[in-house]
Simulated assay, not measured.
Amino acid sequence: MGASIVIDVSDQALMRFQHSDDMWRDFPELVPGVIFAKGVSADVSVSGQVARFAEIAAKRLATATEGELPEIQAWRRAFSQMGLKPTQYRCASESLLRRFRKEGALPRLHPLIDLCNAVSIAYAVPVAVFDVSKISGYVEVGYATGDETYLTFSGESEHPPAGEVVFADAASRAHARRWSNRQSGHSAVRDTTTDVLIVAEALHGTALADMESLTTTLADELSAIWPGTPRSAILSASEPRFEFTP
């Protein structure tokens, strides 16, 4: 592994996020952006922020469908590389853009999720949000061993097959399946959530510049809405690890 980006070290348990070496080998174009934020709550309004980012998405969709956007095309190629049919298993941002194009809005779930979904459609990049209190030790994006357990939003347990890309923790719990396709209900944000790990990933040609803009923009929005200063980093094969202390 490469050098580490140490974000917050104290007497509390240090946690980390990273992609496996195999993922960097197979997807060298990958650019992840990571944010750790404390003090999140559900008693705020993000209507103004959501409207601003939705307007950006609407302008892009006025000239092209989501499937024609370079960000989405890159993810479709990655899904094909993983042996998945890209129009059957869509990355999260494509699914959100598809729904937004058809319905003109996204469902409201929680202020943080609403904000991150709006940022996701504005940038056409998948943005995942995890409740840190539901994570054991670390999260690594890599190929499943077949022993991981995944909890659906309906409460059913699944076991991703060996070789599927998952977000796995130290307890062999999969927090997302098929990479950026479907998140687990276990670590989903709830009204009681306070500390979160936000992960955005891109694969297209201008991914680095776009990810720098996305993480800066989202971190600024978070700090303006909730008390505290979010920590963020852009990861790479040479600096693949993000460490944080809840």
Rank of each mutant, 00 (worst) to 15 (best):
113 I>N: 13
106 L>H: 06
112 L>Q: 10
94 E>G: 06
105 A>S: 11
148 E>N: 06
151 L>T: 09
141 V>F: 07
95 S>N: 10
77 R>V: 11
88 Q>T: 12
88 Q>L: 14
135 I>G: 10
118 A>F: 06
145 T>L: 09
109 L>G: 04
109 L>W: 08
130 F>Y: 14
151 L>Y: 00
115 L>G: 09
133 S>P: 13
155 G>W: 00
139 V>R: 02
96 L>W: 13
112 L>R: 09
152 T>P: 01
148 E>Y: 06
129 V>S: 03
99 R>L: 11
84 L>V: 14
128 A>V: 03
80 S>P: 14
119 V>A: 07
154 S>P: 05
125 V>N: 03
57 A>H: 03
56 I>R: 13
153 F>P: 06
94 E>D: 08
108 R>V: 00
87 T>D: 15
66 E>F: 13
73 Q>S: 09
154 S>Y: 11
92 A>F: 11
127 V>S: 02
142 G>P: 09
111 P>H: 01
131 D>S: 06
121 I>F: 09
63 T>H: 13
131 D>N: 08
108 R>M: 01
65 T>G: 15
146 G>C: 03
150 Y>H: 03
86 P>E: 09
72 I>F: 11
63 T>S: 15
138 Y>S: 07
95 S>C: 05
108 R>N: 04
128 A>L: 05
81 Q>E: 07
140 E>S: 06
74 A>C: 03
103 E>F: 03
57 A>Q: 05
87 T>P: 07
130 F>L: 05
127 V>I: 15
148 E>F: 04
100 F>G: 10
115 L>C: 11
112 L>T: 12
66 E>D: 10
76 R>W: 02
90 R>V: 00
124 A>N: 01
76 R>P: 01
140 E>H: 05
76 R>E: 00
107 P>I: 00
100 F>C: 10
90 R>P: 12
126 P>A: 06
107 P>W: 02
107 P>R: 07
75 W>L: 14
137 G>W: 08
126 P>F: 08
58 A>Y: 07
125 V>I: 11
